[in-house]
Amino acid sequence: MSRDDGAGAALEADVTVSRGGGFRLQARITAAAGQTVAVMGPSGAGKSTLLGAIAGLVELDGGRVRLDGRDLSGFGKPVPASRRGTVLLGQDPRLFPHLTARENVAFGPRAAGTPAAAARRIADDWLDRVGLAGAGKQRPADLSGGQQQRVAIARALAASPRLVLLDEPLTSLDPVTADGIRTVLREHLNGRTCVVVTHDAVDAVALADRLIVVEGGRVAQTGPVREVLRSPATGFVASLAGLNRVVGMSRSGDCVADGVRFAGDSGAHVPDGQAVAAVFRPADVRVAEPGPAPDGTSWTARITRLEQTVAGVRVHTEAPGVAVDLATDALTEADLRPQVSISLHIPAGRVRLLPA
């Protein structure tokens, strides 16, 4: 059987959408043919609105959407969603409950004019690809949530879309099932153009070539995934990457924030008196030992809250706001709790300074 699944198309979208309550989305997103771009941002930032506008489900107030140079958003007469060559898959698989898995997957090819028998062969091939060989006769109600999402992926890709739009398709799945679906997507998105909205940095790293971060309806940062996560431009991006980002003023090549002087490796060359960010891992911060301070930065801060983690406890402090990862026994031995002051130290060479 042929496995010609269609080729991805280059996407160029300048999207302006106004919503109730004064919210306005103004974002630009591009994807080269065959490229996967991840979109991340806080809740309410406009991520799903962006996908809806590209799919033709949300009306634009300005801008345009082009696929391989074709304008899909001509004002007054936009190309209908059903004729854009795009598919949108979200958290809910939205399978037809009265159809079998095979007929659900065959729906797209049949709608495109493929004879019924050939469409069913395509459906069986796709069910095999997503790990559901032999499940073709089952209805959605007979399948688990993860199996339903696999059928939904097969149905979306069997339609040979030129652009795949994924809106947090793994959010409602347990970690093991989500990892399996992630593997399916990584394998079968190859060569297709895709925009995936996610809240999980693992999805961005595993699936995407580029990352766009949207905050408050605007693009806050964009670039290759690992580069964005390594050099966060905002506190939200730092939280995605699991990093501390302390913003202060540049002084003699250091970052001074709340009276603490963070010395670090810097390629930023930020002039004195301008904003600079100190970036470092919570695991690199230690409870300071008695005696002379070793090389690096030492300071005292007040604990604001404690957060349980898989590996132990994350201690959050203020002035400056820093997260510190500790083993649970270290927390107990030091008798640390909210509103208690703690002496902290980060060794030399563990801080990077970035323009803020």
Rank of each mutant, 00 (worst) to 15 (best):
R66V: 11
P78Y: 08
D68L: 05
G85C: 08
R94L: 15
A111M: 15
A55H: 05
P42N: 05
L60A: 02
G85S: 09
V65T: 04
F96A: 13
F107C: 08
G131P: 06
T100R: 07
D125F: 04
D68K: 02
D128V: 08
Q91W: 05
P109L: 09
L88T: 09
A118P: 03
H98K: 09
T86C: 14
G69S: 05
S82E: 14
Q91Y: 06
D68P: 06
N104R: 14
P42R: 06
L89H: 01
G41V: 05
A106F: 07
A111P: 06
D125K: 03
D68V: 02
A45S: 15
G63W: 03
T86G: 08
S48C: 08
V105N: 03
T49I: 05
A45W: 02
R94I: 12
F96N: 13
D68S: 12
T86R: 02
A118L: 12
P80R: 11
V79G: 02
V87T: 14
A38N: 03
L89T: 10
T100D: 12
V79F: 07
G62W: 09
R64N: 11
S73C: 11
I54H: 00
P80C: 08
G131H: 08
A101I: 06
V79E: 06
P115L: 09
Q91I: 10
P93V: 09
T100M: 12
D92F: 13
L50K: 01
A112M: 13
R102N: 07
G85P: 01
A112N: 14
A81I: 07
G46F: 01
K77V: 13
A101Y: 01
D125E: 15
L50N: 00
E59K: 14
G52S: 12
V87E: 04
R83N: 09
R94A: 15
A112S: 15
D125T: 13
A55D: 04
V79R: 09
K77P: 05
G90S: 11
G113R: 14
G44K: 04
K77E: 15
Q91N: 07
G74C: 09
S43N: 15
W126G: 01
R66L: 15
L60E: 00
R84P: 06
A53I: 03
P93S: 12
R121P: 05
A112F: 05
R102I: 12
N104L: 10
A106W: 02
D71N: 15
G131M: 08
A53E: 00
R64D: 14
A81H: 05
P97I: 12
G76T: 09
G63Q: 05
W126Y: 11
V87P: 00
H98D: 11
V130Q: 01
G69M: 03
L67S: 02
G46W: 03
L50C: 01
G52K: 00
D125C: 04
L127A: 04
I54W: 00
A123C: 11
P97W: 09
D92H: 14
R64W: 04
T86Q: 06
G46A: 08
L72W: 04
D125S: 13
G85H: 07
A101G: 04
G56D: 03
S48I: 07
V65A: 01
G74L: 10
D124S: 09
K47M: 03
D128R: 13
A38H: 00
G85E: 08
I122Y: 02
P97N: 11
R121H: 13
T49K: 00
P78C: 07
P80F: 05
D128M: 06
V87G: 04
A55C: 07
A118Q: 15
I54D: 00
S43H: 08
